[in-house]
Amino acid sequence: MSGKMLMKGNIAIAEGAIDAGCRFYAGYPITPQNEIPEYMSKRMPEAGGVFMQAESELISINLVFGASVAGARSMTTSSSPGMSLMQEGISYMAGCELPGVIVNVMRGGPGLGNIAPSQSDYFQAVKPGHGDFRMITLAPSNIQEMYDFTFEAFDLADKYRNPVMILTDGLLGQMMETIELSRGRKPLNPRPASEWALTGAKGREPRKILSLLMKPGALEQHNYDLWKKYDEIKKSELRYEFNEKEKDYDCLIVAFGSVARTSKGVIAEGKDIKAALFRPVTLWPFPYAELREAAKKAKKVFVFEMNMGQMVEDVRLAVQDDSKVEFYGRPGGGLPSQEELLSFLRKKVK
């Protein structure tokens, strides 16, 4: 398959994983991500990998934990309520320094919420689980990126031996869009699993994988080591989209994921307003310094989200001038339209 093709976001995630060499997938049904386990149940065995339908999201993430212990590139996907159940396992993976890719196709909350698109798990992604850990979080904005970012997430996970999250939503999961698959692109496998995975102590000393460190000072040191790694990630893996050509702006719009694409439409449509888009692509690490620089030229910084204000907290930390920051968001599956965002922008600019 090459050339332009129409693909559903959820399927693009599955294809990106398969192409990246993911050979273990576990998932539990929850809308709006069901296409992924359905598709994987057929595609994964074809690719010579293991598909397992877990009996809960707790089991999903711990199956991924086990597959990762055994050295397989592994993934699970879910949506918001399921992601809450996975927090324990994600923390263990971070503590044990196990790679793995976790996809959250967000829906409305809290509680059972609804099945409409939402961005209400931003906090949970960038401030995950229990314990002092971080997780690289990539936020795709179109179906091409659903494929590309999932592909790249496996290399990032292996490179840093850390869980990586794809944070997307029901809109991107359910919509179809033309994309080009880069079949033949080779995953880098930057840190082969053979160096650390448990495969049996043949011709080497036994290995152990653990996150319990009871000796005085041992856990503190482990955390310092993790933070050294996180600092490296901050330096090397930061991603954002900011059109440098658009120097001439007095409004800066900050949005991620599906709201970022709507924001591009707002800028294209609102020719009367000089606006530019700053889109964080990695939500952790967050591009604080780059956003601060971009915000200097702006009279106003607008933050658009599908929640009641989560990323805006990081934007405020970056901008360091609360009087500049304006927020517009809709919770519970409300989809801000291009018109709606543009009229908010016009009202605030005037």
Binding site: L58, F65, G89, K208
Partner: peptide
């Protein structure tokens, strides 16, 4: 021999 931890119950 090779041994891994698991979360409680998992």
């Amino acid at each position: 021999f090779d041994v891994t931890e698991a979360a409680h119950g998992r």
